[in-house]
């Protein structure tokens, strides 16, 4: 997947691999947990069920990825130890994923921006030199295609629906746009993983994400907001205040009964 040929590819360190897989795992987990909050409260029964599907897919991806991260780490932590017994600064999800659901428009905008990134990332990761990661990506990319169809479809309906719906998604887009900076700004780990052939070339993700999102925004009659610099990146453990609350709720039972089996 990278330009480097097989023979000259450097071997990634276990720490790098662990960290990189956690970014993907935590992004799916936190996005899935956010969507799970909505079950039973959607704007119509069909949307309730669809949001539940998205949540199930994302948590399913997280389980596979966390289990892989645990194996890479080799310290005996399983999917639940990683999900329930880490503190907020140890989470590596992109900040966009932890943003609150807000109204249905804000949920859709968040999902749309994130779905485009996950879809392009997993598409590239199907060719990863890490076989286990590539296998997970093969499964995830099919799910992400459906997620994108759902969120981009709703973005179009809301953006090109009524005056009210247009205003609501425009506001959500303005407010969430700053978090896309993280999706498209590679750091040293992204660069090292690309060189190893494990992760995609960051420039490729940026280009494909931009094209995909531009098309969706045009269909939704929404203007692309101006670039907003936002250097506090969840993938390095620097989160918004929302993550702590999400984790307090998600982790409360296993933390209250240490060592219990559920």
């Amino acid at each position: 997947m990278s330009a480097a040929s097989e023979s000259v590819r450097p071997e990634p360190s276990a720490e790098d691999r662990f960290e990189y897989v956690l970014r993907l795992a935590d992004t799916s987990l936190i996005a899935g947990q956010r969507l799970a909050e909505l079950l039973g409260h959607g704007p119509a029964l069909e949307e309730d069920l669809a949001l539940g599907n998205l949540s199930l897919d994302l948590i399913g991806q997280a389980r596979l990825l966390l289990a892989l991260a645990g194996r890479i780490e080799g310290r005996g932590r399983d999917e639940d130890a990683l999900a329930f017994l880490r503190d907020a600064p140890d989470f590596r999800n992109v900040t966009l994923a932890e943003q609150p659901n807000g109204d249905f428009g804000a949920t859709i905008v968040r999902q749309c921006l994130l779905d485009a990134w996950q879809l392009e990332s997993y598409q590239c990761l199907t060719g990863s030199s890490d076989r286990e990661l590539a296998d997970i990506a093969h499964k995830a990319v099919k799910e992400c295609r459906y997620h994108w169809r759902f969120s981009a479809g709703w973005l179009a309906r809301l953006g090109d629906g009524t005056e009210e719906s247009h205003a609501r998604v425009r506001t959500a887009l303005e407010s969430l746009w700053r978090f896309t900076d993280e999706l498209l700004t590679p750091d040293a780990l992204d660069a090292r993983m690309a060189v190893c052939g494990i992760g995609p070339a960051p420039a490729l993700i940026r280009e494909r994400w931009e094209t995909r999102v531009a098309t969706a925004l045009a269909q939704a009659k929404l203007e692309r907001p101006a670039h907003q610099h936002y250097p506090w990146h969840g993938k390095r453990g620097v989160h918004t205040e929302y993550l702590g609350h999400l984790l307090a709720e998600m982790q409360c039972v296993p933390r209250a009964y240490p060592g219990a089996t559920w």
Binding site: L39, G52, L56, I59, R63, D80, E249, Y257, A260
Partner: peptide, 23 residues
């Protein structure tokens, strides 16, 4: 209890169950 399910397996099973009820 979906957001507070004590394991990821329990969480996905509960989501699927609540979704079945909607169905």
């Amino acid at each position: 209890w979906i957001t507070r399910a004590p394991s990821l397996r329990r969480k996905v099973v509960l989501i699927a169950k609540v979704q079945d009820e909607g169905g």
